[in-house]
Structure formats: structure tokens, C-alpha cells
């Protein structure tokens, strides 16, 4: 159980009011990220993102599955069922997200507590990514309407924790989805209205996911005292009484908003937080995209060294 003393809490709160946090950052300053994509060879796309000590590994796998529409009642896969309850089109693929916080990352991730945290994070991801606000063109994932589609499985593994988990997860997801390649399919009509399809084995032929540029990222704003901060460390999160998570896409549109923790806030503060989150979200996406482009340029050169977990 993470603990903090009342005097440390007071020290952090007064520091935030004075715009001088424990590590000297201002209220809206982020720590440095370290990112690397394409490090898991078995996955269709992957990314590892580190924010100080917080370490997140995303693996994206695309698989062929049945299109589940509202007429089937099949309680076996409850997670997919929940997603489908929100969609009733028979020509869309879907995205299934799951988050697992490794117990080695923090004492809080052991046993029953981990289930709640995993469930909460998975639900937030599913809420943001499934649907038009998630950016990804789900119709392009359909192979045979009414029958088969591509399912994108996004699996998040949290390896280490020092605050600001959700922002890291979403930034890494965006990078992993940019990195994902879906094999090309060829549909053949074998008569009788039946369709069959072939998957091309050629790696060069795989295409990017349509709409990855519109995948939103989240900005977590922690209210401490009467002010709010972004990118809280683990200690600062212990002082937070209200946390607002706002998902922003590259056009500055709000794709999701959720409050958590036990406090309440003024509507005017909420309005200010939304405006700040919009600005910060746009900067995050711009800088992430620039770095990903730079990484691709380096990868296309001869010495393509991936560090993976070596560093």
C-alpha cells in the first residue's frame, strides 16, 4: 500500500500552488518520454514507451474473426459482447483492448486490487477506441460483410509504475497502431453468393490501419488543492483528490472525458481543464508523430538497430 505523510502532502500541495513541483517542473510540464516501436516480432505492431520509471509495452495482433451482430446471443466472450452492445452494424470490424498491470510493477497491482485497476483501464480504452471517436476506420476492417472481419487486439502490459499510467498507455497505443500492418486479403466469389478470401503472405503487401492518425491520446489532469497538474508522479497521485481524463485527437476534438477518484470540482475549473487538455493533447500528438517519422527514417537506413529491452 502506497503511503504518504500529511506533511509531505502539504509540501507537495503548496509547491503546486507556487508552480514549483518537487522536481522543479511547472504545473503543465511533462517528463521526458523514451519510445521504441516494432520490438516484438510476433506481434503485428508493438511499442514500448517509458516515462521516467513508468514502463508500458503494447502488443497489437490482428486476427480474423466473426462479425458479431445483435442477433446472436452468445455470452461466452463478455468483453466482446459489451463492445457489440454498442454497435449494431454488420460491416464493421472491432478493437478489443485489455490491460494487465504486472504485479512486479507495484505492490498495489497484486491480488484483487489488480483486477479493479485492470478492468478500469481496459474499460477506458474500449470506450475511447471503439467507435468513430477512436479514429480507426472500423468499416475498413471488414472482409466479408456480415461474416468475417479483422479484429484488432490491443494488449497492454504495464512493466513498471511511477505515475501517469493512462497517458503513457494511450500514447504507446497510438504508436503501436501506427506500427501495425494488416495483411492484404483477396476476396473470391465461388458462386452461390458465397465468398472466400485469401490472405497474402507477403510482408511487403501489408497495409497500415486506416485512420490511425485520428487515434486520440489522453491527458490526465490531477487536481491537488485548488490547482491542477499534468503528468503526476506516484507521490503526486497520492495527493490527488480528483482526476479528470480527457481524450483529445489531433484536431483538438474531445473524444472522451471521465472523472475518477473521490473529490469534486468547480464547473469553471472543469472548463479550464478541458481547454488546457485540448492544447496539451495537440502538442503531444504532434511531437509523437515527429518522433515516429524520425524513427522510421532511421529504420530505413542500413544499420537498423533495435534496442528493445537492452537499455
Amino acid at each position: 500500500m502506497a503511503l504518504i505523510s500529511p506533511s509531505e502532502k502539504d509540501f507537495i500541495t503548496k509547491g503546486i500552488e507556487a508552480d514549483m513541483r518537487n522536481d522543479g517542473r511547472s504545473r503543465i510540464a511533462y517528463r521526458d518520454f523514451t519510445i521504441e516501436t516494432g520490438i516484438v516480432s510476433q506481434a503485428s505492431g508493438s511499442c514500448r514507451l517509458r516515462l521516467s520509471k513508468t514502463d508500458v509495452l503494447i502488443g497489437v495482433k490482428v486476427e480474423i474473426g466473426d462479425i458479431i451482430s445483435n442477433t446472436t446471443s452468445d455470452n461466452n466472450n463478455e468483453q466482446e459482447q459489451d463492445i457489440v452492445n454498442n454497435q449494431n452494424e454488420s460491416d464493421k470490424g472491432r478493437i478489443v483492448c485489455s490491460v494487465e498491470c504486472s504485479p512486479s510493477a507495484s505492490r498495489d497491482f497484486e491480488g484483487k486490487g489488480a483486477n479493479d485497476i485492470n478492468n478500469e483501464l481496459s474499460q477506458i480504452m474500449n470506450r475511447v477506441l471503439n467507435g468513430p471517436q477512436g479514429g480507426i476506420d472500423l468499416k475498413s476492417l471488414c472482409i466479408i460483410p456480415g461474416a468475417q472481419c479483422w479484429i484488432i487486439y490491443v494488449d497492454v502490459l504495464v512493466l513498471d509504475y511511477d505515475g501517469n499510467l493512462l497517458d503513457t498507455i494511450f500514447l504507446a497505443t497510438r504508436a503501436a497502431l501506427q506500427n501495425t500492418r494488416i495483411p492484404k486479403t483477396e476476396i473470391q466469389d465461388i458462386g452461390n453468393g458465397q465468398l472466400e478470401f485469401d490472405i497474402s503472405d507477403d510482408i511487403e503487401d501489408a497495409e497500415k490501419i486506416k485512420g490511425w492518425e485520428d487515434v486520440p491520446v489522453t491527458v490526465s489532469l490531477n487536481k491537488i488543492g485548488q490547482k491542477y497538474i499534468v503528468d503526476a508522479t506516484a507521490m503526486e497521485e497520492l495527493c490527488t483528490d480528483t482526476k479528470i481524463i480527457i481524450a483529445v485527437n489531433r484536431n483538438g476534438e474531445i473524444c472522451a472525458m471521465q472523472k475518477s477518484l473521490y473529490g469534486s470540482l468547480n464547473p469553471s475549473l472543469l472548463t479550464e481543464m478541458i481547454r488546457t487538455a485540448k492544447d496539451i493533447g495537440k502538442v503531444l500528438i504532434k511531437n509523437l508523430d515527429t518522433t515516429l517519422e524520425h524513427e522510421q527514417v532511421m529504420a530505413s537506413r542500413a544499420n537498423n538497430k533495435k534496442f528493445g529491452f537492452f537499455i
Partner: peptide, 12 residues
Amino acid sequence: MEIIFNTPSAPK
């Protein structure tokens, strides 16, 4: 505001 994304580099 400045948000920096680093790519890992070989250690010295």
C-alpha cells in the same frame, strides 16, 4: 510547452 520524445541510443 515542451514535450520531448527520445528514442533510445546506444550507451557510451
